[in-house]
């Protein structure tokens, strides 16, 4: 076995006894794991930006949305409330809508929701809707027994159900609000 050779100068040099990882393995391992790490960092940044951007939409309660109606104007926002008994199927601008009334803290707001309601939509089970205020009356409002009927309605196109934390079956209590509460 010959004398150790300095790799840069090509001359014989002192022997480095420190064990080193294989150079081939380093070259092969670095790009993949580093790219993956960068991808994860990019994903975290994306999620944070997306969340912060979307957070402004999340979400007004009905009473807040009613009192902020002038400021909200035609801006799109999310609103949470408890649907009141009564649902009317109708049409608005050629599209199928369901019309009902939302309630929070005994403040009511009428809603015309484009498309079908969520599968678990029920009076007393809070929903989160996405849409904006529209001046006027929604179609079929005269058939609702507990409508706000204040010359405004929420025109929404996205509905999610905010279920409660009660798993006691029939012993569970429903949100009570508005008429009959």
């Amino acid at each position: 076995m010959g004398e150790p050779v300095d790799e840069e100068s090509g001359e014989a040099g002192p022997l480095d006894l420190t064990p080193q990882a294989s150079r081939l393995r380093r070259r092969a391992g670095r790009p993949l794991s580093t790219v993956f790490l960068l991808a994860v960092v990019a994903a975290v940044v994306f999620v944070l930006l997306r969340t912060l951007g979307d957070a402004s939409l999340f979400f007004y309660e009905v009473d807040e949305a009613v009192s902020a109606r002038a400021e909200l104007g035609t801006e799109r926002f999310r609103v949470v409330g408890t649907p009141q008994p009564g649902l009317v199927e109708s049409h608005l601008d050629g599209q199928a809508v369901v019309v009902f009334t939302l309630c929070v803290a005994d403040v009511l707001a009428d809603v015309a929701h484009l498309g079908d309601p969520a599968e678990l939509f029920q009076p007393g089970v809070p929903v989160v809707l996405q849409g904006s205020w529209v001046s006027g009356d929604p179609p079929g409002i005269e058939n609702l027994s507990a409508a706000a009927d204040d010359g405004w309605y929420l025109r929404t196109d996205h509905m999610v159900v905010k279920h409660d934390n009660d798993y006691r079956g029939d012993a569970a209590e429903l949100e009570s609000c508005g008429v009959g509460s």
């Binding site: 997306r50 979307d54 957070a55 939409l57 969520a118 599968e119 678990l120 509905m159 999610v160 279920h163």
Partner: peptide
């Protein structure tokens, strides 16, 4: 909830 995912 009626959604797979909810950003925000």
């Amino acid at each position: 909830w009626n959604t797979w995912w909810e950003w925000g």
